[in-house]
Structure formats: structure tokens, C-alpha cells
Write a protein that binds this DNA or RNA. Structure first.
Length: 897
RNA sequence: GCCGAUGUGGUGAAAUGGUAAACACAGCAGACUUAAAAUCUGCUGGGGCGAAAGCUCCUUGCCGGUUCGAGUCCGGCCAUCGGCACCA
């Protein structure tokens, strides 16, 4: 009594069959340099997906969007004679896995394995042409051995005067002390305040904290000082900005990175402190006369600095606060410390602060200005202290208004003549002017434009030794340790209060096999529970922190190049071939021509496709590691990813972001079950431009399914028993001119569109071709096979299936082997030439008539035809023809008035 | 507030400065069928005139500009989405 309706074509039978056939034949294995079957004469193409985090929810329809796009390109490049590296793997360490494991009482290794298994199965059901021999998993000891190894390279390096990473052995050779060296390592220990998340029981990187809450879970985050491992990414800030320029990335993403790094030019200025009213600073006693260093992007406004503000946590506060103000200051500091970052930003509108009782001397005019503390000044940026110029800074303005501090105008929109003696006008301006202009009330700067005033004052400060030109970055060093179980242990031991690397021979350093891996609820990491493991020797103990999830994803693309190498994180030859593209083992002349294209570019992954959510985090961290490896000579290119494309988010059918709570989540498995993998692949590519945000439409899937059914019926029809048999219309004849024209247009357009990632228009062209085949009484086999080749990167299963069916009767048109291994067809320009074309006639730009003319009709002939057209004559009427524009093969525009 | 992206039919969208709306979805009508599904064929931006074939005007967020010709290029607005945000 099953009411199951008949499938339009038996995708449920042949899709798994072809997946099995590809797998059994290892059809998409990519040989490496050195392998017997490696063909170094081919150019390389490295097409990379952002590897997924294998969550318990399984694949989301967003995953196949990017994965299908790269699969189409990979298959196309493969058919076009490239060695294609198209791998897949798992970013499997991390907080969510551990949270899930804790919740369900299972070991994260067990849940991770199961999730990976599930993801792999789901991806295989979509028919992606991955080389599964290169699969990587960041939690695999054979993988994280090298993550730990790279950490040791960071630990063992410093940045030299030229800004390049170099081994610390160079510093040892110069006789630097252990402490001096430790202070310069790229991986170093710091006591700085960090983002502690009590709920997750770990500290987080700045990048993982969003609006004062953890990115994972959304729990409150507070700042507290803790001993942590940091990576010195700030030493690479300038290069991370500069080297974006050579990359083929969306402008928006490059900007996001630039903004995140946040370079600003300005000056550092030193202000002397006077302890209290009447007390003069003791010039020869620095301890008695501390100085406050501030960073400012507007040194030209120095004459307008009427007070100073320190961050509440600033260490100098203790030294300068007066007896009288001490208790108020302490109260304020305690209040600020209790505030989470969230509260601090939420309350941003209302300024708060307290006077320290101390004064500083403004070095340009020797004026005594009060020193305050306020939480609008952040310890983490600049020097943690500012000179406040309320007339020209919105925040200072608000603060000054609230606490009734003096406001002095020092910049005016237009130059203003000063009275002789440059008397200072202390009339406060009516509003805050934070723009550039001309200096006023500023002694020797008066009349100068802002830019010039900056130069003048900076030179003056440098001359007096109280300031200097400075470049400041928003980017902070990368907080690299986590108090969690499910991550890479640090290959570090502690002895006598000092850290040191364990020998490389001891890698991989496996985490202890803990039964209880829950956070301790204190900053003490869970690894502390494994007493035996912790004890390294009689006197040394292991580092208890683990690495953050980002570690494994910083270099996975390199591991893909040589995933099974047990000697090295990536083989020298493999890295050079896949990242630079130098063909190995070619005769000199031949290799030179092959090299032209790849070496014009800085190199790296040829195409990297993934979501915008990694625009700053992953992409910045990976670039940083890559540059360190480049400086140390381990990789050949300064940048890892040459071309980056962001796929757009797929929204639910209701136009909202897909989420369980909205109930609008589409499960790819259900789509595959009902319509097949090819339909899903085709639909996701047909939805619209890859980079665009677009809503899901089940009807749209049905449309693609119908298209594939039409393709199927070009070759197959049902007999009286209801079985699929080959259509009699399929015949070994040559295509007529009309069909042949569409066919060659399709080859051309689809090839071009794939290169441009315009998959939606490629698919519509194939629909046009399919209609042409349908309307033709006979289906010429040769033309049909050519079409299958064009279709195969998009819908590989049905293409292979029809190809095999065609072979059963027309073996001469479908030689043995996979369609996936066939050569991409070449288009014949002569087939596309028409005998006649339609030209349109316009009068004053408006379409009035059209005519069919021979394709080689001359300008004069077309013009004559246009002027003879009754419609044209009607609209020209009594007007005078001023001009006639003729575009041969296109149009005639008669201009008349 | 700052930065970025996007605005085209009922919907997803397409258009090297040259016929706006290809290709699909949805809708309507017809063929096939006892019927339904599936399939196939046709119509489908808006207004006006016409019985109809057809004719005609308008239309790519808004306002201007360049051009023989603008969805496309330039200038100025508006709206939506995304990111950043006390960064001195």
C-alpha cells in the first residue's frame, strides 16, 4: 500500500554506487612529487575549504555551499590538465567538543571520533572529489605532534631588528642572559590581565570575547591577572598589514584585518608628575618624580591638554595618589574591577572617574594639570594613559563637561590671527571639534595646519627628549593558553621557576588519559589532576595549560601537502610544489614556460573558500604562523592564501538566520535522501552568486531535480514494464548546426563561468542546452557526451551514470574510465558563428524596430535598412537627422531633433 | 558614530556602456489521464487604447550629471544587511 511516488530518475541507486566506485578506485588520489605516478609537467592547483569543526549536529547546508564550489573548480581544473590538491580534514579540538563531552559524560575523544565519522559519511554522500588519503585531524597525535613542533619553533625564536623571526640561538651567541632571551621569545609567559571566563573555566583570547561575553556559549568574561602563554603577533603587525596588498582577497576582508590590527601614527609624550599642590618634583630623583607616558594621535593639540587620565589599573596610580584621595580612588578601582567588560562597555555613555589628587606638568606650557583615573581609558591600549584634550576629543569633552574640567580650544576650522604676545584665550568652545584644522592658542604652532603642527610639535618633543614619534597598534599579543583538557598540551616543562622546551624526540606529547577532565572551577587547569603525567622528573613538572583551538587550524593547509610525512611537518618538495608551483623534474626550457604564471604571484593556496566568520581570527593567526615559518626557512611563501573567497550565508526559508530555536534549519541529509546529492549540489550553486547571502528554497531544489530528470530523459525512457531503457532518440549522428552552436556556447560559457565562480549562470546555460537537446528529434551521442563532461563537475553522479549507460551501446563515444578523468572539451569558435544576426533600430535611443541581417553586413547596408524602416521613419517624422550611430551586428541609433 | 556590502518582476536572479528581466521558482491556461501525480506546451513587470492581432507610454531605491545610448560610469541622498566601536 506504499504510496511512494516513483523517482524521476534512480539517483538513490546510482549515487552511492558511483561514490563506492570512486572510493574503490581511489579516483581522486593526488600524487605528490616523488611518487611514481606524479606528473611534474602539469601545473598545480591547490583549492582549499575551511575544514569543519565536527559538531554533534552534523553537516549544515552552509557547508556544502563552499565545498561544492571548490569541488566544481577542482574537478574542472583536473579535467583541464592540472594536478589538483583538494583535501579535507577536521578541526576537532576545542571548547564545544569538551562542553558536549562534559554534558553527556563521555570522553571528548569518543564523541569527536563519532562526530568525525558522521561528518565524513555525510561529505562522502555528496560526492566530493577529495583525496581522502590526505585527511587530517587536529586531535590525531601524528598531527598535533607537528602543532607542538611549530610551537617549539615559536618558543625558540625572537624577532630581530629587521622584523624577521630568527632562532634565539642567535641571542645566546650574543651572550644574552636567560631572562633577556625569555623576554624576547615569540612564545612567552606573561602575568598580564586576561579574559577569564568562570563559566567555561578558562581564559580566552581578545578575539574570542564578544561584547564582554565568551564567543562560545555567551558567558560573562572578567579581567584578572594570570600567568599565561602569549604569542608575540604584535611584532608582525606591520607586515600583517603590508603584505595584505599582494593578496587576491575581498577588499572588505582586508579592511577588516587592517582595522583589527588598528595601526595609528602619533607620538608618545612624557608628562612629569608633581605629587601634590606645593610639592615640586625632584628633578634628580626619578622615583620621587614619576613620569606618565601617553600616546596620542594628535600631538598638535598638546597645548589643549587640560588634564590627564590613567586607566584605573595603571601601576602608576599607587605611586601618585594623594593621602586625601586614596580611599576614593581605591573604591573606584574596586568598582571598576568588579565590572565585567560587558558592563564597562554598556555603561560607556555615562563617563565615570575620580581625581587622584596628583598633578602633572604639561611640558609645552609648564601648566599644572590634574590627573584623574577613569575606566574610559583602557590599560591595554597605547600606554594606558592619556592626555585629555576636551575641546577636540568627544570622550574627553564629555568627561570634562561632567566633572567641570577646563576646556581650551587649540584647533580652529580656519586659521585665526593671534594677538601679539599670543595671549591664550580660555573661552571654552561651544562644541567639540575633533576634526583637523589650524592650530590656535598654541604658541609656536599657531596658524599651522594640523598635519604640519603634528610634525612641528613632534620634532620639538624629540629635541627636548620628552617625546617621540610612535606607531601604535590595536592588536594585542595572542593569549595562547587555555585551562582546558581537550587541546594540545604545551611541550614545556618547568623547573626552578623557569620554563624550557622538551626535546623534539618526545613529541607528540600526548595529554594524560583523564577520566575526570572537567574544569577545576579555579584557574588551575584540569591537567593538574594527572599527578603522574605532571611530574616530568624529580625536579621538573609539565606545563598544565593547553593550546587554543586555533592552533591546529593555523597550519593544516601545509599538512595537506604531505599529510603522511612522519619525518617533517611537510616535505620540502611537497611544500614547494603545492605552495609555489615549481614543476619538479622538468627540462629547463619547459619548466621556465610552466613557471611564468605561478611565480608572478606570491604563491600559496590558489583558492581558499570559507565563511566570513574567520575574517580576522583564523586568517590572521594562520598568516602570522606562516610568516614565522617563512622567516625560519620552513616554507617558501610569505603568505599562505593567495586568493580568498567568502561564500555567503544561507538563510532559512523564512529569510532568517538558520537556528534550531527558529525551527528553520535544513538538514542536507534529508535533501540528499529525497532529491539526491546532485540536486543539492546544483541547487546550492544555482541559488545565486556564491558570495551573496541568500535564503533557502525547497522549491528551488525541486527545480534542479527536475532539470536533472530532463537530462536523464535525454538518454533514458521507460518501457511498458516501467523499466528505464535507453531512448531510441540517442543516435550516432552529428549534431545539426543549431544544436552544435548551443553546445559550443555552453562549453565556452561554463568553462569561463567556473573560473569566475559564476556557477548559477553556468547552470542556466546547461539548462538552455538541455532544452535544445529535448527539442531535437535525435540526440546525437557525441554532442551528448560532450555535454556530460561539462555537467560532470556540477553533478558528477548522474554524469558518470549516463556516460556508463552510453558506453554500453556507443563505446566509441564513451571510452572506459571515469568521466571525471576525461579532458574538458574544447569549444570550436567557428561553430558559434551565425549566418544572420538580429539588429535593432533605435530613434533617439528608443527601440523602434528590428531586422535580421547577414552577419557580415556592412555599416552602410545596415544604416540604409534602418533608414528605410517604416517605424524608424514614423518616429523620425519631420525631425532632422543629426547623427547615426551604427554598431555592426548590434544596433543602429538614429539621432534626430 | 565609523567602515564595508547590497538595492532590478510575486520570489531567487541575469545582463563586455548597446533589445532590461536570460535561467529558474511560484501562478494561470492547455495537452496526456477515468482521475490525480509526473511529464509536455503556452502565458505571466505596470499603465493606457483596442473585440482581437496589435499599438503606445512608463519601469532597475530617490535626485542630478556624463553619453547618440546608463541597471551598468560620475556626484549627492535614502533604505536594508553585515562588521567594528570609549582604540586616545
Amino acid at each position: 500500500m506504499s504510496n511512494e511516488r516513483r523517482k524521476q530518475f534512480p539517483f538513490d541507486e546510482f549515487e552511492p554506487r558511483w561514490q563506492a566506485a570512486w572510493e574503490q578506485a581511489n579516483a581522486f588520489r593526488t600524487p605528490n612529487p616523488g611518487d611514481a605516478d606524479f606528473d611534474g609537467s602539469k601545473p598545480k592547483f591547490f583549492v582549499l575549504d575551511m575544514f569543519p569543526y565536527p559538531s554533534g549536529n552534523g553537516l549544515h547546508v552552509g557547508h556544502p555551499e563552499g565545498y561544492t564550489a571548490t569541488d566544481i573548480i577542482g574537478r574542472f581544473k583536473r579535467m583541464s590538465g592540472f594536478n589538483v590538491l583538494h583535501p579535507m580534514g577536521w578541526d576537532a579540538f576545542g571548547l564545544p567538543a569538551e562542553q558536549y563531552a562534559i554534558k553527556t559524560g563521555q570522553h571528548p575523544r569518543a564523541t569527536t571520533e563519532r562526530n568525525v565519522e558522521n561528518f565524513r559519511g555525510q561529505l562522502k554522500r555528496l560526492g566530493f572529489a577529495y583525496d581522502w588519503d590526505r585527511e587530517v585531524n587536529t586531535t590525531d597525535p601524528d598531527y598535533f605532534k607537528w602543532t607542538q613542533w611549530i610551537f617549539l619553533k615559536l618558543y625558540g625564536s625572537y624577532v630581530n631588528d629587521e622584523g624577521k623571526a630568527r632562532p634565539v640561538s642567535e641571542l645566546e651567541a650574543k651572550g644574552l642572559s636567560r631572562e633577556e632571551i625569555d623576554a624576547r621569545r615569540l612564545a612567552y609567559v606573561s602575568e598580564a590581565p586576561v579574559n577569564w571566563c568562570p563559566e567555561l573555566g578558562t581564559v580566552l583570547a581578545n578575539e574570542e570575547v564578544v561584547d564582554g561575553k565568551s564567543d562560545v556559549g555567551g558567558f560573562p568574561v572578567e579581567r584578572r591577572p594570570m600567568r599565561q602563554w602569549m604569542l608575540r603577533i604584535t611584532s608582525f603587525a606591520q607586515r600583517l598589514i603590508d603584505e595584505l596588498d599582494g593578496l587576491d582577497w575581498p577588499e572588505g576582508i582586508r579592511l577588516l584585518q587592517r582595522n583589527w590590527i588598528g595601526r595609528s601614527e602619533g607620538a608618545e609624550v612624557k608628562f612629569k608628575v608633581v605629587q601634590a599642590a606645593g610639592l615640586q618634583p625632584k628633578a634628580d630623583n626619578p622615583a620621587g618624580c614619576p613620569a606618565i607616558h601617553v600616546f596620542t594621535t594628535r600631538p598638535d593639540t598638546l597645548f589643549g591638554a587640560t588634564y590627564m587620565v590613567l586607566a584605573p589599573e595603571h601601576p602608576l596610580v599607587d605611586q601618585i595618589v594623594t593621602e586625601e584621595q586614596l580611599s576614593d580612588v581605591e573604591t573606584y578601582r574596586a568598582k571598576t574591577a568588579r565590572k565585567s567588560d560587558l558592563e564597562r562597555t554598556e555603561l560607556a555613555k555615562e563617563k565615570s572617574g575620580i581625581f587622584t589628587g596628583a598633578y602633572a606638568i604639561n611640558p609645552v606650557n609648564e601648566e599644572r594639570i590634574p590627573i584623574w583615573i577613569a575606566d574610559y581609558v583602557l590599560l591595554g591600549y597605547g600606554t594606558g594613559a592619556i592626555m585629555a584634550v576636551p575641546a577636540h576629543d568627544e570622550r574627553d569633552w564629555e568627561f570634562a563637561k561632567k566633572f567641570d574640567l577646563p576646556i581650551r580650544e587649540v584647533v580652529a576650522a580656519a586659521p585665526r590671527l593671534q594677538g601679539e604676545g599670543s595671549a591664550v584665550c580660555d573661552m571654552p568652545p561651544l562644541e567639540c571639534l575633533s576634526l583637523e584644522g589650524f592650530a590656535v592658542n598654541s604658541s609656536f604652532l599657531n596658524g599651522l595646519a594640523t598635519l604640519e603642527a603634528k610634525h612641528r610639535i613632534t620634532a620639538w618633543l624629540e629635541e627636548k627628549g620628552i617625546g617621540k614619534k610612535t606607531i601604535n597598534f590595536k592588536l594585542r599579543d595572542w593569549l595562547f593558553s587555555r585551562q582546558r583538557y581537550w587541546g594540545e598540551p604545551f611541550p614545556i616543562v618547568w623547573e626552578g621557576g623557569h620554563h624550557r622546551a622538551i626535546p623534539e624526540s618526545e613529541l607528540p606529547l600526548q595529554p594524560p588519559d583523564l577520566v575526570d577532565f572537567k574544569p577545576t572551577g579555579t584557574p588551575e587547569p584540569p591537567l593538574s589532576k594527572a599527578a603522574d603525567w605532571v611530574k616530568y622528573s624529580a625536579t621538573a613538572t609539565r606545563e598544565l595549560n593547553t593550546m587554543p583551538q586555533w592552533a591546529g587550524s593555523c597550519w593544516y593547509y601545509l599538512r595537506y601537502c604531505d599529510a603522511r610525512n612522519s619525518e617533517r611537518f611537510v616535505g620540502v618538495e611537497a611544500e614547494r610544489y603545492w605552495m609555489v608551483g615549481q614543476p619538479a623534474g622538468l627540462p629547463e626550457s619547459e619548466s621556465a614556460t610552466q613557471r611564468v604564471t605561478p611565480l608572478l604571484k606570491p604563491g600559496g593556496v590558489d583558492l581558499y573558500v570559507g565563511g566570513t566568520e574567520h575574517a580576522v581570527l583564523h586568517l590572521l593567526y594562520a598568516r602570522f604562523w606562516h610568516k614565522v615559518l617563512f622567516d625560519l626557512g620552513y616554507v617558501s611563501t610569505p603568505e599562505p592564501f593567495q586568493r580568498l573567497v567568502n561564500q555567503g550565508l544561507i538563510l532559512g526559508e523564512d529569510g532568517q538566520k538558520m537556528s534550531k530555536s527558529r525551527g528553520n534549519v535544513v538538514n542536507p541529509d534529508d535533501v540528499v535522501e529525497e532529491y539526491g546529492a546532485d540536486s543539492l549540489r546544483l541547487y546550492e550553486m544555482f541559488m545565486g552568486p556564491l558570495e551573496q547571502v541568500k535564503p533557502w528554497s525547497t522549491n528551488g531544489v525541486v527545480g534542479q531535480h527536475r532539470f536533472l530528470a530532463r537530462v536523464w530523459r535525454l538518454v533514458m525512457e521507460t518501457n511498458q514494464e516501467g523499466e528505464w531503457v535507453m531512448s531510441a532518440a540517442l543516435q550516432d549522428v552529428t549534431a545539426d548546426k543549431k544544436l552544435n552552436k548551443v553546445l559550443h556556447e555552453t562549453i565556452k560559457k561554463c568553462g569561463g563561468d567556473i573560473e569566475k565562480l559564476c556557477f548559477n549562470t553556468a547552470i542556466s546555460q546547461m539548462m538552455v542546452l538541455t532544452t535544445a537537446f529535448t527539442q531535437s528529434d535525435v540526440r546525437p551521442v557525441g554532442a551528448l557526451v560532450t555535454f556530460l563532461k561539462v555537467l560532470s563537475p556540477f553533478a558528477p553522479h548522474i554524469a558518470e551514470e549516463i556516460y556508463a549507460i552510453v558506453r554500453s551501446q556507443f563505446p566509441q563515444h564513451a571510452p572506459a574510465g571515469f568521466l571525471a578523468d576525461c579532458e574538458w572539451p574544447k569549444f570550436d569558435p567557428s561553430a558559434m558563428i551565425e549566418d544572420e544576426v538580429e539588429v535593432v533600430f533605435q530613434v533617439n535611443g528608443k527601440l523602434r524596430d528590428r531586422a535580421t541581417v547577414p552577419v557580415n553586413a556592412s555599416k552602410e547596408e545596415i544604416e540604409k535598412l534602418a533608414l528605410a524602416s517604416p517605424k524608424v521613419r514614423e518616429f523620425v517624422g519631420a525631425l532632422t537627422v543629426r547623427k547615426i550611430v551604427v554598431v555592426p551586428g548590434k544596433l543602429v541609433n538614429v539621432v534626430a531633433n
